[in-house]
Amino acid sequence: MEFILFYIFGFIAVVSALLIILQKNPIYSAVFLILTLFSVAILFLLLNAQFVAAVQVLVYAGAIMTLFLFAIMLLNIKYEEKAFSKLANLKITGIFVTFVLFIEFMYMIFLRKGLGIAGNISPEKVAEVGNVELIGKILFTKYLFPFEVASLVLLVAMVGVIVLAKKKF
C-alpha cells in the first residue's frame, strides 16, 4: 500500500515539477508548483514525518505560494518573457549542472553507495514520543542557539523590508 502511494505521488511530483518549467504562463507554473509541494508533503507523510508534511502544506503551499501569485500578478509578464529569452546562453550551464545532479542521484540509487549513516531516531521512537513533541524537544534543547539566531535573521529581514519600502527617511 505504502509503495503504491509512494509511486503515485512521486510520479505526480516529478511530472508537475516538469510542467512548472514547461509552462509559458507563470500562473500555470505557480499552480503546478502547488501540486508538486502537495505531493512532496504526502511523501513526507509516508516517511512518518507528519509535522513536516503539515508545515510543507501550510507554509510552502499556503503562505509562500500566495506571495508568488501576488508577485506574478503585479509584474509585467510580457517584459519577463523578453528577459528570459536573453538567458539562452545560460542553458548550457543549466544542462551541465542538471546532468551532474542526475548522475549523482543515479549513483546513489543504483549503487546504494555513500548513503551515509542512519540517524539515531527510529520510526518507533517517533511513534512513541510523538512527532511534534520530538521536534519541539530537539528545537528547544540541542538546537536552542540556532533557534534564537533564526529570530535574529527574521528581525533583520523585517528591518530591511521597511527600509526599502517606507515612503521617506
Binding site: 542557539f145 540556532p146 539566531v149 535574529l152 533583520v156 529581514a157 528591518v159 530591511g160 527600509v163 526599502l164
Partner: peptide, 16 residues
C-alpha cells in the same frame, strides 16, 4: 547550521 544562519544575517543586511 549556525554558520548558515550567521551567513544569512550577514547577507540579508548587505542586500539591503
Amino acid at each position: 547550521i549556525v554558520i548558515f544562519l550567521g551567513l544569512e544575517t550577514l547577507s540579508i543586511s548587505l542586500y539591503i
